[in-house]
Simulated assay, not measured.
Amino acid sequence: MNYSAPLAPTGNSIRLFPMMSPGQSPIAIGNNVLGSGGITLIPPACRLSSPTDYNINMGRWVNSGPGSLLPGSSLPAYGSIRPVDLNLECSGQVNGVQFRFEDAGSSPSSNKNISLYDSAGGNKIEGLEIEMRYGGSRVAVDNITKTDTGSKGAIKTNPQDLSFNSQDSATFGARFVQTAPIKKSGAIYTGPVTGKVNMYVTYH
């Protein structure tokens, strides 16, 4: 998973990168001073802790639905939720840390889930996807929907301490969803699958 760092130093200023629409420019805040006295406002920020790439083993999925070996099965069928703990490091307390997810596959799912491909050739798998969850609700993987995970980090008593040493986390979930017979190029498929999602971290 990839992420976008909310703050990046640019010379003597700090640029804030909020959630923006295409074509919009970042908001420069480094020159905002109090009373022209040279006091620069630097808001706290959060970012993903290292490592920033996560590999989640989803386990084995047993084919469900009509024609499967499971009596009385029906579709859609859902797997058990695997926890995905995303570790954060903050430079202070941030009121609202948000996550946005983008399907990084070559043929994104129209269901706003994570599309899957065979591990060997990268061919699209039909009928099986991965659904993301947060707080008991489904998360749309559409590169638009933002999931607010609330306040993260801790208030610091030392205003000179701008380091990212306040640790926190956000726990998401992922599970298999089968919506049709599992196929690759029109033929029944039973091999390993893989999927990829990009993740963006912002705050307000």
Rank of each mutant, 00 (worst) to 15 (best):
M1E: 10
P6K: 04
A8W: 06
A8Y: 11
S13I: 13
L16F: 14
Q24Y: 00
I27S: 09
A28R: 09
N32Y: 14
G35L: 14
G37Y: 00
G38I: 12
T40G: 08
L41K: 05
I42S: 06
L48A: 11
S49Y: 01
T52N: 12
N55G: 08
N57W: 08
M58A: 09
N63A: 12
S64H: 08
G65E: 01
P66T: 02
L69C: 07
G72C: 04
G72K: 00
I81P: 02
P83G: 09
V84C: 07
D85C: 07
S91Q: 02
G92M: 05
V94M: 01
Q98I: 12
R100H: 03
F101A: 04
S107F: 07
S109M: 03
I114R: 01
A120Q: 14
G121S: 15
N123I: 07
I125C: 02
I130F: 04
M132F: 11
M132H: 02
R133L: 07
A140Q: 14
V141Q: 04
D142P: 08
N143S: 15
T145E: 02
D148N: 15
T149R: 04
A154T: 14
K156Y: 06
T157A: 15
T157K: 06
N158Y: 07
F164S: 01
N165D: 15
S166Q: 15
G173R: 01
V177E: 06
Q178I: 01
P181V: 10
V193H: 01
G195T: 06
N198M: 09
N198Q: 11
N198G: 11
T202R: 00
Y203V: 05
